[in-house]
């Protein structure tokens, strides 16, 4: 039961309280760029959940069995310093691989997520999750839950933002604030709202 409680606390903390976009500033690019329509925003959000889910599992495996391998560490070989290089390459090739796989075997899913996949390689949230999981010393299961929770947090933030942007499209905004500036003001207000959750004690 202890583990289940830990997992639940990780999930709630990173999906809502420490929201990836609104309080950690990871994945700002797609958050500002792909949030014009709710449909595309939810497509992007789903693609991020999909990629981070796979990527956190794979990078977790690599970390546990290769980089921080007990046997190697006992031999005095510490490969952990390679984490940044290994993870960015693994994530970049993983996204390519997932894209090819989806195109070949799941055309329906590819239709809905395909266009977003290349955008995700340079998304700092994916690399950030992989690196943070090591800093927080999560085990494999916790890493995957942490990754998925972060991605769900991203989904919530980007879909909410898209909903608000669809509304403010019809508002009379001062000229200099049109475009990105008003989106950033909106993000600031959303961030204040999400700060309210930080009082939650889990």
């Amino acid at each position: 039961m202890e583990t289940l409680a830990t997992l639940f606390s990780i999930a709630v903390t990173y999906a809502i309280i420490n929201n990836v976009v609104l309080s950690q500033f990871l994945g700002i690019c797609p958050f500002l760029g792909v949030s014009k329509k709710t449909e595309t925003a939810s497509g992007m959000g789903l693609a991020v959940i999909f990629v981070i889910g796979i990527a956190s599992f794979v990078t977790g495996l690599i970390n546990q069995f290769i980089l921080a391998n007990e046997a190697l560490l006992n031999l005095g070989i510490d490969l952990r310093y390679l984490k940044t290089i290994v993870f960015i390459l693994v994530i970049a090739s993983l996204v390519q691989f997932v894209e090819m796989f989806l195109k070949k075997s799941m055309p329906a899913l590819y239709e809905s997520l395909g266009v977003f996949l290349p955008l995700i390689t340079t998304n700092c949230a994916v690399l950030g999750v992989a690196l943070n999981a090591i800093t927080y010393e999560y085990n494999l299961l916790e890493t995957v839950v942490y990754g998925l929770a972060t991605a769900v947090g991203f989904f919530i933030a980007i879909v909410l933002m898209a909903g608000i942007r669809e509304k403010i499209e019809y508002n009379d905004i001062p000229k200099p604030f049109q475009g990105t500036a008003i989106v950033l003001v909106t993000a600031a207000l959303m961030s204040i709202a999400f700060m309210g959750f930080s009082g939650m004690n889990i």
Binding site: L184, L189, I192
Partner: peptide, 14 residues
Amino acid sequence: RAPGAFLVLAFLVA
């Protein structure tokens, strides 16, 4: 804190 970052950047962009 986090909201301030968005707000300052918004005014910068404007």
